[in-house]
């Protein structure tokens, strides 16, 4: 599975097409300021690697889950 397709599963086509303003801003900033990728690599979108976004989101999701564990333990 290509990273683009994987991203479509997680985020929908809107991100890839740059329709979602928030992500578009991040990607545009990434293109200017963050030296990930080169903008032509199939694994990059406008300079920022899709894999980077995925792994950052995975990390955030894990720690959000662990925070949920702290908040949810009282209900056990």
């Amino acid at each position: 599975m290509s990273p683009q397709n994987l991203c479509r599963i997680y985020m929908g086509n809107t991100l890839w097409d740059g329709e979602f303003t928030g992500f578009r801003w991040i990607l545009r900033r990434g293109h200017r300021a963050v030296p990930f990728g080169n903008g032509t690599d199939p694994q990059t979108i406008r300079g920022a690697s899709m894999w980077d976004l995925l792994y950052i989101m995975l990390t955030v999701a894990f720690f959000a889950l662990a925070t949920g564990l702290i908040l949810g333990l009282d209900r056990l």
Partner: peptide, 28 residues
């Protein structure tokens, strides 16, 4: 214990993200 655990967890999350960024930017 909740605040103690949250401080531990979130400080670790921030340091992990910092580590990730440096490793991704190492070449530069």
């Amino acid at each position: 214990w909740k605040r103690y655990g949250a401080a531990l967890l979130l400080s670790n999350a921030a340091m992990m993200m910092l580590g990730y960024l440096i490793l991704r930017l190492q070449r530069h």
